[in-house]
Amino acid sequence: MAKSLLIVSRQAPWAGPAAREALDIALAGGAFDLPIGLLFLDDGVFQLVAGQQPQRIEQKDLGANLQALPLFGIESLYAARHSLAERGLTEEALSLPVQVLDDTGLAALLDQYDQVITL
């Protein structure tokens, strides 16, 4: 049985390479059918904002890439409730269907995976 991996993505989309790297790990794992979960935490939730125009700052379209996650077999997507609330984001405004978790849910989620990597 392959080990499950939770990827915690906590950087804003254009803050540096971290958001892209977290997604690349997820897609690579998904391509090999590994059990992968992806949690958007802290500024990472800004990756989920719909309608971003990365071409204006000459960045690749991370938002479009994120939409491919279900096709890569990655459907365990989560966001931290407090991170959304702190940033004035609501679940309805997000570009991907994610499960929104409170603090207790986050601890339980972490517990559930064999490995965790935070970027």
């Binding site: 935490l41 802290d42 931290a80 603090d103 601890a107 339980a108 972490l110």
Partner: peptide, 15 residues
């Protein structure tokens, strides 16, 4: 930096 705060939020009872 906010790492400590975020970590405290998802810290499990046996972590």
């Amino acid at each position: 930096d906010g790492r400590l705060n975020s970590c405290l939020r998802l810290l499990g009872a046996a972590d």
